[in-house]
């Protein structure tokens, strides 16, 4: 049984009396010990999806099965215990740590709230959590602003791990960091996963980072998953024209001044194009694409793609 199983999830919010469907029928699973990468551009709904999975936002339809239990309708005590199991690492290590609290307060808070351990045990656990992420215990009495960006992200990871969760949702954990720090944090996340047997949902707009870090990849466009597969499949044999365009758009050494693969802007989730959502920007679009909305269908081993024109069946 997968650790997390998302089934036909919908979520949205009202903007000016209009319903904006940020997550529009998303299904996927995360297995124990697996890193699932979720890649997409801004406005594709990947952060909204993270918020729904963390139950910071209520879904409007669909199920989120965590270890077999639907967490979508949970409230009060059961919701609180779900939160011990699923934690989140945020994008901005400057905004997600309270500047008024010391590191000790930040790390002991979750333990206090969940009634874990005695006072001495909590202090001990906070120190241990710091050392685990490569910061010394002496940092306990400091404030977040005294740390560099990379070190703050280490604090964010320490806080997420202090409740010993099984699933960690990483929402763009390295995109606010400098390149020289990114590798440190990715290596740390990788080490934590191995040591603690974690599962990750790793959200990023950066394909190179997802390619390095994810076992399985979901590509999201306008609230839908348009392609999924193992990292090898997705990056060696991308089937959806959007996935291909995304990869082609990444500036790469060894290629010079190539033309942009896609024209036009990402449409707003407020008026989703009829038929295939990608058709206005798609180089392969045919009249069929303007009428019929393609669903995810198998294309190879575990690979699935939502495109009328993608080849199906196993790779030759």
């Amino acid at each position: 049984m997968p650790l997390l199983s998302v089934e036909d999830l919908h979520a949205g919010y009202a903007v000016g009396g209009q319903m904006l469907r940020a997550v529009d029928g998303v299904s996927f699973t995360v297995n124990t010990g697996e890193t699932v990468g979720l890649v997409g551009e801004s406005g594709c709904g990947k952060s909204s999806l993270a918020k729904v999975l963390m139950r910071l936002v209520a879904p409007s339809a669909g199920r989120v099965l965590f270890d077999g239990t639907d967490v979508a309708p949970l409230k009060g005590g059961p919701l609180k215990s779900y939160r011990r199991q699923a934690q989140m690492v945020f994008q901005d290590p400057f905004a997600s740590l309270n500047p008024r609290h010391t590191v000790a307060e930040i790390l002991k808070g979750p333990l206090e709230v969940h009634g874990l351990g005695s006072r001495a045990e909590r202090a001990q656990a906070a120190g241990a959590a710091l050392e685990r992420v490569g910061l010394p215990r002496a940092a306990l009495s400091r404030y977040p602003h005294e740390f560099s960006g990379g070190q703050r992200q280490r604090l964010g990871i320490a806080r997420a791990l202090i409740l010993s969760p099984r699933l960690v949702i990483c929402d763009e954990p390295v995109s606010a960091l400098d390149l020289s720090i990114q590798a440190q944090i990715l290596n740390l996340l990788s080490k934590m996963k191995a040591e603690l047997g974690l599962s990750y949902l790793f959200i990023s707009h950066d394909l190179s980072v997802v390619r390095y870090f994810a076992d399985r990849v979901l590509v999201m466009y306008l609230g839908r998953i348009v392609e999924t597969g193992s990292w090898q499949e997705i990056f060696s044999r991308p089937l959806h024209p959007y996935t291909r365009a995304l990869m082609e758009a990444v500036p790469t050494p060894g290629r010079r001044r190539h033309a942009a693969p896609l024209s036009g802007d990402l449409p707003s989730a407020r008026n989703v194009p009829a038929g295939c959502r990608f058709h206005p920007r798609c180089p392969l679009a045919t009249p069929l694409c303007t009428e019929a909305d393609p669903v995810l269908r198998p294309a190879g081993d575990g690979q699935q793609v939502a495109c009328h024109h993608a080849p199906t069946g196993a790779p030759h």
Binding site: S148, S180, Q182, A183, S190, Y212
Partner: peptide
């Protein structure tokens, strides 16, 4: 260090194989 630390789209590196080369410390 920068070139070694950046994950590349075309490179064969994956976290299951080994860690990225990191530049220790910060600026």
């Amino acid at each position: 260090g920068l070139l070694a630390a950046s994950p590349r789209l075309e490179a064969g590196q994956h976290c299951s194989v080994g860690p990225l080369n990191e530049i220790r410390g910060s600026i």
